[in-house]
Design a protein around this nucleic acid. Structure first.
Lengths: 256, 256
DNA sequence: GCAATGCGCGCGACAATCGCGCAAAGCAGA
DNA sequence: TCTGCTTTGCGCGATTGTCGCGCGCATTGC
């Protein structure tokens, strides 16, 4: 993943980094930015921020009324380039669909990006929860089964580094907020080869996930299924779900 | 929309445009790029393309093995900034859900971006077609009901300019491939105030769409519902769907 | 085996980007 | 309605960051 040990000295386009920072400066709390607010949020000077916003506007990525600027749907093309080019999200789709139908839950394919997992494919109920997941959504890796599965594939010392000094934001009363609990869960997952994660992100929901590897044994993501807890034990849910997940895992390994 | 009549002379960050071009150079047919292929696809020099790729890699937006580069899920953050900041996609969600349930079809909210419409919210059947629509997906504006609805809100002379010299790619045997047919459909839509589009994008499917405006009467997007044709007439489908769409339209106008 | 293509890298030069500072415009409170 | 604080757009000179050429080497194809 992070193959950037040393900084490149001259192979660095400062304008690109700043421009991307400006795009990411838009958020829920700041849907419209002026040059000065953008400058404050990105750490670049006001004059420069204004130039970046004007450039982005000219390219169609942002719209503006002359003073305020806001993102235009054009920026979705950037994310789309990923879905268009990454083959994994498409390859997993039929398997997700099959598992969804057989188990009656929502299935996901997620990849790791630094501290978070990103959902890049999904299938199943469209309105599972008030916050319906959409593609590209992110959550902290430690609260969802694909995240635990992916972390369990890293060497233990890297996991320790990952856990170190992290803030564990609780989503439910059951969310682990101590590093030891999360580490124990990851260790258990590593030993078993699959992740069983209960009520970390959402009450009354459990997730079961397995990592997906390429033929070269590189871990590229994880498939998960989210099931209501009901009055089924964790082991019963695993007994139902794991064979299907494993089947998908092996089929995909020969495809990727 | 396009409020950029003249070019800014000095307020132009060349590096940002090139960097974004590099990101968009990745696609289905070119999921992995070398500096030279990227250079060819973007029109910048090989040396420069390499610098942009290295910068993007260092920022985490692309991964690479030293020779080949591919997009990393990090780029989805850029598109996510849009969903996070744009309020319309979130505001329409409950209305889409309600219409989906009542009519039993898939509902969409789409906005116009140059020649295409972009689906930025949706609800309903998760596997409508082999290529399930995901958020951010794009199609030519003339083959989907939201596109026709949005085009019908433009002044006729602008529509003529839009139609002029356009290639109409057929998706089904029924897709209009002549500008006059598309213009007639748009004119009819303008007169009626809603769009009824049949089998332009998908066989045996019809879409019904209404434009959504702000309080200031600016058109910001369109809500559509996609229904199977079955043995229902277009007018029957309109009679079922239009009241619900209109209700959403009016409710949203006071929110946006 | 050789030819051809494509790779990373260093260098000198130019121009693109930088941030300052000013004048005017917007906004809040009185 | 007036006043003062904030923030805006914009011009300018300096510099630094970006450019593309050309080299030598690795890899592929015939």
């Amino acid at each position: 993943m992070g193959s950037e040990q040393e900084l490149d000295r001259r192979d660095w386009i400062a304008g690109l980094e700043k421009g991307l920072r400006v795009i990411e400066a838009f958020s829920d709390a700041h849907p419209r930015l002026t040059p000065s607010t953008a400058a404050r949020r990105t750490g670049i000077t006001r004059t420069a921020a204004r130039r970046y916003l004007l450039t982005l506007q000219h390219l169609g990525y942002v719209d503006g009324d002359g003073t305020y600027f806001w993102l235009a749907p054009r920026v979705l093309r950037l994310g789309w380039s990923y879905f268009d080019s990454a083959k994994a999200p498409r390859a997993v789709q039929p398997y997700l669909q099959r598992i969804s139908i057989e188990l009656g839950g929502a299935t996901f394919f997620a990849v790791l990006d630094e501290d978070e997992i990103v959902f890049v494919a999904r299938n199943g109920t469209t309105r599972i929860q008030n916050l319906g997941f959409v593609l590209g959504a992110r959550v902290a890796a430690n609260v969802a089964s694909p995240g635990i599965a992916l972390l369990s594939c890293k060497p233990p010392e890297e996991v320790d580094k990952w856990l170190e000094g992290r803030k564990f934001v609780p989503y439910t009363p059951s969310t682990y907020t101590r590093a030891e609990d999360v580490r124990a869960l990851i260790d258990r997952t590593r030993a078993l080869g699959y992740a069983l994660v209960e009520q970390q992100l959402k009450q009354d929901r459990r997730g079961i996930a397995v990592p997906i590897r390429t033929r070269g044994d590189d871990v590229i993501g994880a498939i998960s299924v989210s099931l209501p807890i009901g009055n089924e034990t964790g082991q019963q849910a695993v007994a139902r779900a794991l064979p299907l997940l494993r089947e998908a895992e092996h089929a995909l390994q020969s495809l990727l």
